[in-house]
């Protein structure tokens, strides 16, 4: 029973990683940068959601989604746009870029501590919270179901934006070859702004859901983003299915191993899994044929 319950718990955790992973994959797709700051945005958004207890949950969610766009643009201005001018070397070796996003994540974490303290906070649920029994003593919360639904929604929305819309084609053109895209009439900088605005909306959505279901604290910034990026590495980051499957694998591993061997063993197991993937199949389980390794 414990194992089954752990698996059910793991689905919730994995869904959270998958959601954050979708956001990170979105940035990767558009700017070729793995942005650790995504973890910070998600957690900050969650903290804001959790501390706006006076608002009706649905209104809060709508407000957050509206604020998400300018917030995403702000991150773009501070990190990637600023970095563009200095990159003399291919992105995958541009470790300074990684440092910038890690530093930004740390700054966002510090802002979280400064504004909200280190306490774990929960937001009022849009869908009333309940615990459902699956029989045999196994329970699942509406939160887990909500997370899984959010993954499906986020996956479909990402797929639509990236694969099916004109915007997506333009974004991809930019990420593949900015110069050619510019020559063929795509307004590159506008595209990047738009992408980050969308990213902000996605992150704020994830933040709100996380605050409702698992609770948020600034302590979580790196835990969440590292879990999500692990998922990206395992799943392969360029397609929608990669982050989702990868995130679920990471979440299930963490939950099941943690239940048996504790947090430390779970962390080591995740790291081991990722190292094996990196050394054996660096492009992940669902590599995009046209892409290089993640990162």
């Amino acid at each position: 029973m414990r194992e089954l319950q752990s698996l059910v718990n793991g689905v919730g955790l994995g869904a959270l990683y998958a959601l954050v992973g979708l956001a990170a994959a979105f940035v990767l797709r558009v700017t070729k940068i793995m942005n650790f700051a995504v973890g910070g945005i998600v957690v900050l958004a969650g903290l804001f959601a959790a501390s706006s207890s006076g608002l009706p949950p649905a209104l809060r969610l709508i407000l957050l989604l509206l604020v998400g766009a300018p917030a995403g643009v702000l991150v773009h201005l501070v990190s990637t746009r600023w970095l563009e001018g200095r990159s003399q070397r291919p992105q995958e070796h541009d470790l300074g870029g990684v440092l910038v996003t890690v530093a930004l994540a740390t700054a966002l974490q510090g802002l979280g501590y400064l504004l909200f303290g280190s306490d774990l906070r929960y937001a009022t649920s849009v869908v009333p919270a309940a615990t459902l029994s699956l029989g045999g003593g196994i329970t699942v919360t509406t939160g887990t179901i909500l997370l899984v639904a959010a993954v499906a929604l986020g996956g479909v929305a990402s797929w639509f934006v990236l694969e099916r819309s004109g915007l997506g084609r333009a974004l991809r053109a930019v990420s593949d070859d900015a110069t050619t895209a510019r020559l063929s009439g795509v307004r590159v900088s506008t595209m990047a702004y738009l992408a980050y605005a969308l990213l902000g909306v996605l992150c704020f959505f994830v933040g709100d859901v996380a605050a409702e279901v698992v609770g948020v604290t600034p302590d979580n910034v790196f835990h969440i983003i590292v879990g999500a990026l692990f998922g990206l590495v395992i799943g392969g980051g360029d397609r929608i299915v990669g982050p989702i499957v990868g995130g679920l694998i990471v979440g299930l591993t963490e939950s099941v191993v943690n239940a048996r061997g504790g947090q430390f063993t779970a962390t080591v197991a995740q790291l081991g899994l990722v190292l094996v993937i990196l050394l054996v199949a660096p492009r992940g389980l669902f590599p995009d044929r046209t892409s290089r390794a993640v990162g």
Binding site: S255, A259, G262, Q263
Partner: peptide
């Protein structure tokens, strides 16, 4: 006993439950 920095103790609580 649990890790003070843990952000999820669901596995441990699952054990209490079972």
């Amino acid at each position: 006993p649990f890790d003070g920095a843990a952000t999820s103790l669901t596995p441990q609580v699952t054990q209490l439950k079972s």
